[in-house]
Design a protein around this nucleic acid. Structure first.
Lengths: 118, 118
DNA sequence: CGGTTTTATAACTAGATGGTTTTGTACCGT
DNA sequence: ACGGTACAAAACCATCTAGTTATAAAACCG
């Protein structure tokens, strides 16, 4: 799982405006002006956010006359979620038991749970 | 779900060094020097990354003599994953059908899938 | 006490980010 | 052909980020 894909995805998600844009796109395609409407921000400001989302592969651009409707592309979100899923046991009920278990296995040091290839 | 929590969490995850540190901490507590070892980076550099992770609530600091072992705190990761889970249907097989369905329900506008409260 | 280990802090730099205003470009409608 | 709408691109600015080196502080070891 390429590191820079996760880099770009998480970085794109680290901004509330961009997350709100993605949320809006769950309802379907939307033009730039539609996407800009809810925000107290200039249109070029929104376009910059859209460029970030696009470079992360989270949205794609269509065309309809002058309009360039954006569409949600959720693929990278799956990659992000897959990465996070490695940590699921650490926030679940069974956390303490599993943590202790790993602590005891520590001497052997097998990569038991899952890791990012560095 | 507070926006700045997600901001800090996703921002912290957007760096491969920090993700690798979290992966390392899955195996259990580790001191700063242990965490720094795998990287071609100065110790203060690693300490800065640790500060970012700590401010995002992703790690905590213990104490053992001079050492300040870090421990994984996975809580915020669950919040991040919960947010991502809203998009699950958009990368799954049934995506197209579900997307069309939402498009048709659009007029009524019930918050069917889930959204960030802005 | 004196030296070593471990970590933190400060000061600095280069480059990225998030926003602005201004301007340009493409397409529509009349 | 002309004016308006939709978007993009450029230039600029302030702030944040990721790294560095150098230094200080705290606790151990002998």
């Amino acid at each position: 799982m390429a590191a820079d894909v996760l880099d770009a995805t998480f970085a794109a998600l680290a901004d509330p405006t961009r997350r709100a844009i993605l949320a809006r796109l769950m309802e379907g395609e939307a033009t730039v002006t539609e996407l800009a409407a809810p925000f107290a921000m200039s249109q070029p400001g929104i376009s910059k956010h859209l460029r970030v989302l696009e470079r992360a592969g989270l949205i794609s651009r269509g065309r309809d006359a002058q309009r360039r409707p954006r569409r949600l592309e959720a693929g990278p979100l799956k990659d992000a979620m897959d990465w996070l899923a490695n940590y699921r046991s650490y926030w679940e009920e069974s956390y303490q038991r599993l943590d202790d278990l790993l602590g005891e296995l520590d001497s052997g040091g097998p990569n038991a749970v899952g890791q990012e290839s560095p």
